[in-house]
Structures are given as structure tokens and as C-alpha cells.
């Protein structure tokens, strides 16, 4: 079955991105396909490479980046939501004059529009929403 995942809450304050990660791992372990993971609202903060959680805590950004690398996952951060919250890739950082090295989008993530979310609903067998 073809799944898509929507993450609507940010890391650590809410458990949604943890649960989404565990669900995505379980889906892949069962041999299903994950078409895309879309990060919206504060969920875009999962895609910041600048988070530094304590060493004895889980690192959500790294866990997602590692999972993406292992399974060639498509992790998409909503551009409008990301710009509001200061998540920028190199192109956006340059376009908005934020200076050299300002980009903070983590490895394995890409920035794109809400159309990618609608497409998930159209193309997937199941779109599973993780939020508050």
C-alpha cells in the first residue's frame, strides 16, 4: 500500500513528529511504500539542522534525515510555513538576503509548496495526519 505522512506539530513540544517517525518506520518494515512525508505548521521545525537536543535525548531531525537516507524518503517542508518560522535552504536564504551560511535546512529535506501535500492525498492509498 502507498502511504503518505503529514506532520503538523514541531519537535519536542509535541510528540506528533516522534509518533510519525515510528509509524513511518513501521510502514516501511511491513514492506509498504511511503510516497512522501510533508511537514506543515510547526512541523517544519523538524527540518532545522541547528537543533541540538541533550545527548541523552532523541534527535528527531537526525532520525528523520537518517531514515530518509536509508529508504530514499521524500521529506518535504512547506515553503510558506518554513519561511514564517525561519527554515531556509540555500536558495531561499540567498533570495531573502539572509547572508552566507544562513541556510539551516537539514540533510534529506527539501522545501516545496502545498501542492505537494494535495498530490499526496490524490496519489496515496492512505494519507495519515500526525498533529495535536
Amino acid at each position: 500500500m502507498k502511504f503518505s505522512i503529514l506532520v503538523n506539530e514541531g519537535p519536542y513540544t509535541h510528540q506528533a513528529s516522534d509518533t510519525a517517525l515510528q509509524f513511518t518506520r513501521a510502514v516501511l518494515a511491513k514492506g509498504h511504500e511511503v510516497m512522501r512525508v510533508f511537514f506543515y505548521h510547526d512541523g517544519v521545525n523538524v527540518g532545522s539542522r541547528l537543533t541540538v537536543p541533550p545527548q541523552d535525548d532523541r534527535n528527531l531531525q537526525k532520525s528523520w534525515s537518517d531514515l530518509a537516507e536509508e529508504h530514499k524518503l521524500d521529506l518535504v517542508v512547506c515553503i510558506a510555513a518554513a519561511q514564517r518560522r525561519g527554515i531556509l535552504d540555500e536558495g531561499e536564504a540567498k533570495r531573502h538576503g539572509k547572508g552566507e551560511g544562513a541556510a539551516n535546512l537539514a540533510p534529506g529535506f527539501r522545501i516545496s509548496g502545498l501542492g505537494q501535500l494535495i498530490e499526496m492525498g490524490i496519489e496515496s492509498d492512505r494519507l495519515v495526519v500526525f498533529g495535536d
Binding site: 505548521h41 510558506a80 510555513a81 509548496g113 502545498l114 501542492g115 501535500l117 494535495i118 498530490e119 492525498g121
Partner: peptide, 12 residues
């Protein structure tokens, strides 16, 4: 932000 999704989704 829900309304923003509805507006984009309307084009599909």
C-alpha cells in the same frame, strides 16, 4: 494555515 491549504487544493 488550513485555509492556505484549501486555497492551493482548490486548483486540483
Amino acid at each position: 494555515e488550513a485555509l492556505e491549504v484549501v486555497l492551493i487544493g482548490a486548483a486540483f
